[in-house]
């Protein structure tokens, strides 16, 4: 069951195509990563889901039916460019934003109390936003995003502006929201956070969805058949030059913890790992054997073909 489906979205701006036939299916209760370099069209897609702007063609379905503007009451959106009214008090501000999302005054007040209590920041309620530090403002912003208990949460670069402690706090909050039944879309350049919390991803590059699927499946599909092995220091595996009947090839030698190590590559993807181990055991005393799966960062760079701006 997909909670959100964006089908064949096309969005054309005057000079360039922001989205070209992009289809994204977000399963219910998953954390879905939306990746891509700057200017790829992620934010445009998010804005279309939020009814901030409309697609030239294609539809957005929520819960199996065509999305209508009032659906934004069930969406919590934390934009990349975010801010608050600086002169307003924290409590007033949260109340105002919650009321805009259709919460009644009493519900809103209850939720504000709940969330401020959760982050242990009740004493901020009467403070003006401009008196708070940037990290504090981000927390308020996060509360404003989730205060109406939306079914769908969209975070655009949520960790920018957070220190590691607060980023971790935020990550745990996001995971908890998922466990409570929310569906979460997560747009970021930060690949390590993607590996940690995303279930599925779509990688958008130059207005097109170039890579989609479950994160483990993607890593498996992109593996380069590289293995890290360690073996006793008195044995060696020969570094053959490539011959047609070789099972493996040594890419790199090294030493670690009193062992010889090497990174080897399977020459033929159809060779099973057992056959590879057997071939190596004939040469050396094997201690460890581990397949190297590519990181999302590598996959990203390989796919996009340009270095990622890590921030």
């Amino acid at each position: 069951m997909y909670y959100l489906e964006a089908r064949n979205i096309v969005k054309q701006y005057a000079s360039h195509k922001a989205l070209d036939d992009v289809t994204v299916r977000v399963p219910e209760n998953h954390i879905y990563g939306l990746l891509g370099p700057n200017g790829a069209g992620k934010t445009t897609l998010i804005r279309i889901i939020n009814h901030i702007t409309g697609p030239d063609s294609g539809e957005v379905y929520i819960n199996g039916r065509l999305s209508v503007p009032s659906d934004v009451e069930n969406i919590g959106y934390l934009p990349e460019e975010r801010g608050l009214y600086k002169k307003m008090k924290v409590g007033e501000q949260l109340l105002y934003l919650a009321r805009l999302k259709g919460l009644s005054r009493n519900d809103a007040k209850q939720q504000i109390k709940h969330w401020l209590g959760k982050f242990d920041i009740q004493e901020w309620e009467k403070k003006k936003v401009e008196e708070l530090s940037k990290g504090m403002q981000q927390k308020i912003q996060f509360i404003a995003t989730v205060i109406h208990r939306p079914k769908l949460l969209i975070f655009d670069e949520p960790f920018s502006g957070f220190d590691p402690v607060n980023a971790n706090l935020l990550k745990n909050e996001i995971l908890e929201l998922r466990n409570q039944g929310a569906t979460i879309i997560f747009s970021t350049h930060n690949m390590s956070s993607v590996e940690e919390i995303c279930d599925e991803i779509t990688l958008i590059n130059r207005s097109r969805a170039v890579l989609q699927g479950e994160i483990n499946a993607i890593r498996q599909a992109h593996k380069k058949h590289l293995f890290k092995v360690a073996y006793s220091h008195d044995t060696t595996i020969p570094g053959y030059t490539l011959r047609s009947n070789d099972i493996y090839q040594v890419m790199e030698y090294g030493q670690a913890g009193g062992c010889n190590t090497a990174i080897v590559r399977k020459c033929d993807a159809s060779t099973t790992n057992n056959e590879l181990i057997a071939a190596m055991m004939r040469e050396c005393q094997l201690n460890t054997f581990e397949e190297i799966l590519p990181s999302m960062n590598e996959i990203f760079i390989d796919t996009v073909g340009e270095p990622v701006n890590k921030d």
Partner: peptide, 15 residues
């Protein structure tokens, strides 16, 4: 509202 960057938060709730 634009320089405060609150406007995108607002337009996700209001047209």
């Amino acid at each position: 509202e634009k320089t405060n960057r609150i406007v995108e938060v607002m337009v996700s709730s209001v047209k």
